Amino acid sequence: MSVWQRPLKKLLLVTEQTTHRFRFSSLKGFVSLVLVGAFLSVVLAACTGGNGNNSATENPTASPVAARKPNVELTLVSFAVTKAAHEAIIPKFVEKWKQEQNQTVTFRQSYGGSGSQTRAVIDGLEADIVHLALALDTQKIEKAGLIQPGWEKEVPNNGIVSKSVGAIITRPGNPKGIKSWADLAKGDVRVITADPKTSGIARWNFLALWNSVIKTGGDEAKATEFVTQVYRNVPILTKDAREATDAFAKQGQGDALINYENEVILAQQKGEKLDYVIPDVNISIDNPIAVVDRNVDKHGNREVAEAFVNFLYTPEAQEEFIKLGFRPADEKLAQTKEVADKFPKVQTLGTVQDFGGWTSIDQKFFADGGVFDQIQSKNRR
């Protein structure tokens, strides 16, 4: 007998004894009996779950989702360069969910710089799902109490759902002869990149530059000297990757643009002719996804939010990421000929773990007074 059955059996016995004492000939007795019955019904519901799940348990094919409201809304907050991928994937999920659960899902979507999006969520933007440029941003939302610890263990690949590497886009014909990160430090090269204080991709850009020195045998002093020179060649730091692309492509600023490889591929698919380089020494740009626990519990849409996150790891969704230039998070897909032919091989690939993880990286490089601020201070002199 289960724990709740013991007090329930006792309650039934007491109730049976009590009802024998009531006389149905009196109105008072009848009302009392009705009240006892109502109370017993509440107790029974509480003891057996009281949430409508019994039918689903007895009938495994019954859907608790379909039994609820016919429409549900999700708010997806993501970094700017994922917009095209999500716009291709979301309709596939909506159709699948409708077929399986008979429930219509609508999405509210917000795209911008990862750092700016992170602050917006912390400040009250009620995202149900966040797909951000770096795990550091997701960790900030966790520290604000919106995401429960261990989010990265609830889905495959430690929460990483999309990947890329750093690319250098040049002017047509590559007139400056740029072939590697080292060429960005030349005195006659102007470099366009976003601001690491507001953009996740800009932090990856910074790490790609730093990593290129460390992975080729240089020490931190040489890395600092090199990165300082590159940022001396940056005429403007944009808010996010999209603005950096616009400054380079539409406004004609700079000789080279540092960006995600997937942005280059997407631009080519739209008909733009771009010359670009994928340096042999590079950084693995890993983008995590997470359910915002406090908000989904508030909105009552956890089930569909978690289903969407898991859908992003399916081959069907990953193939959409691949089509739009992201390297797959699925290692099986990464080893296929299609992927190998699409993406240039990187000889030396650094990772966040090589530098102690995002908490250490943020404190060392991007916190107030960190390496980036020191570099900017030198360059303003």
Rank of each mutant, 00 (worst) to 15 (best):
residue 107 F to G: 02
residue 44 L to Q: 06
residue 207 L to H: 04
residue 269 Q to I: 14
residue 189 V to L: 05
residue 61 T to R: 15
residue 26 S to F: 10
residue 52 G to N: 06
residue 342 K to P: 02
residue 252 G to Y: 11
residue 308 F to C: 12
residue 255 D to A: 09
residue 376 Q to E: 14
residue 193 T to R: 07
residue 8 L to R: 08
residue 170 T to S: 05
residue 182 A to E: 13
residue 114 S to P: 05
residue 107 F to N: 06
residue 62 A to H: 11
residue 123 D to Q: 11
residue 344 P to L: 09
residue 208 A to D: 04
residue 80 A to N: 11
residue 323 K to Y: 09
residue 363 Q to M: 03
residue 222 K to T: 06
residue 216 T to I: 03
residue 287 N to S: 13
residue 69 K to A: 04
residue 223 A to M: 10
residue 40 L to R: 10
residue 42 V to R: 04
residue 113 G to D: 05
residue 184 L to F: 04
residue 33 L to K: 11
residue 9 K to L: 13
residue 54 N to Y: 08
residue 124 G to N: 08
residue 5 Q to D: 03
residue 189 V to D: 02
residue 250 K to M: 02
residue 143 K to H: 03
residue 193 T to I: 13
residue 336 T to S: 07
residue 333 L to Q: 04
residue 354 D to W: 03
residue 311 F to H: 08
residue 202 A to K: 10
residue 164 S to I: 14
residue 96 K to A: 04
residue 13 L to H: 03
residue 286 D to G: 00
residue 146 L to Q: 06
residue 364 K to V: 13
residue 61 T to N: 11
residue 122 I to C: 07
residue 37 G to W: 11
residue 343 F to K: 06
residue 338 E to S: 10
residue 215 K to W: 01
residue 216 T to G: 04
residue 93 F to M: 10
residue 86 H to V: 03
residue 257 L to I: 00
residue 203 R to G: 01
residue 344 P to M: 10
residue 123 D to P: 00
residue 342 K to W: 04
residue 38 A to F: 14
residue 69 K to V: 06
residue 95 E to A: 13
residue 175 P to D: 01
residue 6 R to P: 01
residue 183 D to S: 12
residue 203 R to K: 15
residue 99 Q to C: 04
residue 251 Q to F: 14
residue 299 H to K: 15
residue 338 E to A: 15
residue 98 K to I: 03
residue 364 K to I: 14
residue 90 I to P: 00
residue 327 R to M: 15
residue 101 Q to C: 01
residue 346 V to W: 12
residue 269 Q to E: 09
residue 95 E to R: 03
residue 134 L to G: 02
residue 197 K to N: 07
residue 153 K to R: 10
residue 92 K to R: 07
residue 151 W to N: 03
residue 356 G to C: 09
residue 127 A to C: 07
residue 336 T to Q: 10
residue 258 I to S: 04
residue 308 F to L: 15
residue 331 E to Q: 10
residue 332 K to M: 12
residue 235 P to G: 06
residue 303 E to M: 12
residue 341 D to R: 11
residue 343 F to A: 03
residue 273 K to N: 10
residue 113 G to M: 13
residue 49 G to V: 15
residue 217 G to Q: 09
residue 263 E to G: 08
residue 210 W to T: 00
residue 376 Q to C: 10
residue 61 T to P: 01
residue 65 V to C: 07
residue 103 Q to I: 08
